[in-house]
């Protein structure tokens, strides 16, 4: 893949054009990445609003009714519910692994068996999350599809 940057004075906003021979899965994935970049999530940390790109989001969870978003080293809060975030991220690399947790499989390193027919997901930042037994099949399907 070649990346070309062409500065044009007349352009008022950033324009990204994907030139391809045919519309493959890879092209769609690239499209989603760029589209997500254009529509970041608005989150809070210490009362200050921040812009968070999906590509930086490792996982999201709900604790006592509050939704938290985790990047490699930071934790942000949002007023949206986990379901709302899940719907906004749908069609991308995010998958529900339990009733209150959603992960980005781009940052999923490996899984290992855990008690009570659950799996333990190891994230690339060293975090360990539990995959509920009813969510194993969905995780498998999504990783298999290579979404």
């Amino acid at each position: 893949m070649k990346i070309i940057i062409e500065p044009q004075n007349k352009l008022e906003e950033l324009l990204v054009k994907i030139l391809c021979k045919e519309e493959t899965e890879e092209v769609h994935r690239l499209y989603h990445h760029i589209a997500n970049y254009a529509q970041p999530l608005w989150v809070f940390k210490d009362g200050i609003q921040h812009k968070l790109y999906e590509t930086d989001l490792y996982y999201a969870d709900t604790v006592e009714g509050k939704t938290f978003l985790y990047t490699e080293n930071e934790i942000y809060e949002t007023t949206d519910s986990l379901l709302c975030i899940e719907n906004n991220l749908k069609g991308n690399q995010f998958v529900r692994i339990s009733k209150n947790c959603l992960i980005n499989i781009d940052f999923l390193m490996k899984v290992e068996p855990f008690s009570n027919h659950r799996l333990l997901a190891h994230m690339k930042n060293g975090e360990k999350l539990i995959v509920g037994r009813t969510y194993i099949q969905e995780l498998k399907n999504i990783v298999k599809k290579g979404r």
């Binding site: 499989i105 490996k110 068996p113 799996l119 194993i136 498998k140 990783v143």
Partner: peptide
Amino acid sequence: LKMDAEEINRYLEKR
């Protein structure tokens, strides 16, 4: 469960 984990890890590695 071990088989499921191995399968997921295989797909992750391939991915």
